[in-house]
Design a protein around this nucleic acid. Structure first.
Length: 264
DNA sequence: ATGCCCCCGTCCCGGGGA
């Protein structure tokens, strides 16, 4: 069973790319982020026509996340639970979660994450990022008590380690490399979640994003900010993981490329 | 110090991204 995650940077702009990726038979479940369209405008039928199930949590212009699966998607929830001291809903569409029962594998609960960027830092947007991280932390901790196979995947907008960035010093002061962002990511891992890419590739670069500017792709000036965090029950089934760089080289690509992991 | 590049909206600029 293969699971992939991809920030597509507008599904309208990348619809054909996503269909092509699914056609290439590289995954059974694909989690996509930054759709930038509403549920009404999501091209659901184009995926159903090819035999996929789809659940979306969209928003006009910004954000938006979705789950695309070969197998039926059930127990769908949209948005993260609020913390006890919060009294109003997060109006950003940044999280969708569901249960998927995979034949000959069992059930997996998947969370599709588009974590806030947080720049400029410091500032209200960075505060929002850390608050969002807190919500995710509380929910991730709660999920672990189920002892299910869980995968929390998506664009975390954090480079965890220096090896995850072509020029860490150049990112000084940026919300993606801020010590509070990195601490929040490691705090999630310390709950008992495994960073799938890093588990399979303990050393070396595994970039998932290259800026459109300054020839970043051609120079391989990338960063690793798309992550797949696995509960112990999921991690024990993990057999492989990687970055699929091919779609970043397509015409009019997303600035992110798919990350994937395989289970058995 | 800022923009480079890309996407969106009702749109020829500004906001947001990373």
């Amino acid at each position: 069973m293969r699971l992939a995650s991809w920030n597509v940077n507008s599904l309208k702009a990348r619809h054909e790319h996503v269909l092509a990726y699914l056609d290439s038979d590289k995954c059974d479940i694909l989690l996509i982020q930054e759709l930038k369209l509403t549920d009404e405008n999501f091209p659901t039928q184009s995926f159903i026509d090819k035999g996929w199930h789809v659940e979306t949590h969209g928003q006009k212009t910004y954000n938006g996340v979705a789950i695309i699966s070969h197998y039926a998607i059930t127990e769908v929830t949209r948005g993260l639970p609020l913390l006890v001291d919060e009294d109003h809903e997060d109006d950003h569409a940044r999280y969708i979660e569901a249960r998927i029962d995979v034949p000959d594998f069992g059930m997996m609960r998947v969370g599709c994450i588009y974590l806030p960027n947080g720049n400029p830092c410091p500032g209200p947007k960075f505060d929002y990022k850390l608050r969002w991280f807190n919500r995710l932390h509380a929910h991730a901790a709660s999920l672990l008590t189920s002892e299910e196979k869980i995968a929390l995947c998506g664009d975390y907008n954090v480079m965890p380690q220096a090896v995850d960035c072509y020029d860490p010093e150049g990112w000084t002061g940026d919300a993606l490399w801020h010590e509070d962002s990195r601490a929040a990511f490691f705090s999630l891992c310390n709950l008992g979640y495994t960073d799938a890419i890093r588990a399979i590739h303990p050393n070396g670069e595994q970039y998932s994003y290259w800026d459109y500017q300054k020839g970043a792709w051609q120079r391989n000036n990338g960063i690793r900010i798309d992550h797949m965090l696995l509960s112990p029950e999921a991690a024990s089934c993990l057999v492989d993981a990687g970055i699929d760089k091919e779609p970043r080289g397509w015409e009019r690509p997303s600035d992110h490329t798919p990350v994937w992991c395989a289970f058995r």
